[in-house]
Amino acid sequence: MLTKRIIPCLDVKDGKTVKGINFKEIKDVGDPVELGKLYAEFGADELVFLDITATHEKRKTLSTLVERIAKNINIPFTVGGGISSIDDVSILLQSGADKISINSAAVRNPQLITNLANRFGSQCVVLAIDTKFDNNDWYVYLNGGRIKTDIKAYDWAKEATEKGAGEILLTSMNHDGTKQGFAIDITKKISTNVNVPVIASGGAGTMEHFYDVFTDGNADAALAASIFHYKEIGIPQLKEFLKQRNISIRI
């Protein structure tokens, strides 16, 4: 039986992880490769590296980093952040990324999704949606949540999967960083109505939150950052918890 996936997310800037990390076992706490390896050993099902570097030099830095990650990690990993063209994706896949995630660029140019899917296959095109609930609905936000659009998250998810997105990474801005649990309603609405896997993101604070988003939210995977980085929840402990509650999980 296909299992639910647990996905740690690492924010990377200039080749280093940004958030303070509590792992004492590793020497260079800023090294995303070492952190990724550690997570893989702990049983992470997949990794997401989100590049938040804002310089023109970034493509080079990022592709070098992706090469190092690919050499050292034997589980799937996704790279996202500022990707806007076939060339961007081509470099990252050639460097060893398994999937790429696109966000703002896809909203500005939805054809990009189709072009990437035709060229590289839907399986490596993850559509990231940053969404916020206001005026009685969930709207799509761009540029790391700074720009509001009038596009509804559900409509965008439907359209993007029709255009070829192979997976949806759904982040609720209302929940992100709160540790009060995932956005169950919109996750469920999208996951139940699109035929591609949905990764829920934003709000993880307890192990029950993961249980809730897999059961009530119908999510295929759940992503979190700080609770893993700060060791508030260990991945093996989380997976054991879920397995005991009859969630299909890889131990």
Partner: peptide, 11 residues
């Protein structure tokens, strides 16, 4: 009725 493609870990 499962999602297609199958993406993830299976036994």
């Amino acid at each position: 009725s499962n999602k297609i493609p199958q993406i993830g870990w299976n036994s």
